Amino acid sequence: MPADASAPIPLAFDQLRRHPEAVPEEVPGLLEQLGEAPDPRDPRGVRHTLVVVLAPTACAV
Rank of each mutant, 00 (worst) to 15 (best):
V61N: 15
I9F: 13
P20N: 00
A3W: 11
L30T: 07
V27E: 00
E26P: 01
H19V: 12
P24Y: 01
V46P: 01
L11P: 00
L54A: 06
L11T: 11
P43I: 01
P8Q: 03
E36M: 14
Q33N: 08
A22G: 08
P20K: 03
S6F: 10
P2H: 08
A37Q: 13
R41V: 05
A55L: 10
Q15N: 06
P40V: 02
F13W: 11
T49R: 14
E21Y: 12
R41F: 02
P10S: 09
T49G: 12
G29F: 03
A12H: 04
V51P: 00
A58I: 14
D39K: 01
A7R: 06
L54W: 03
E36K: 15
H19T: 14
T49K: 11
A5E: 06
L54H: 02
V51C: 03
P24C: 02
P56D: 07
G45L: 14
A58P: 03
E25L: 15
A5R: 13
L16M: 09
R18W: 02
P38E: 15
E25P: 09
S6W: 08
L11R: 15
T49F: 04
E26A: 14
L31A: 08
A60H: 10
A55K: 04
I9T: 10
V51I: 08
V52P: 01
M1P: 13
P40E: 02
P2Q: 04
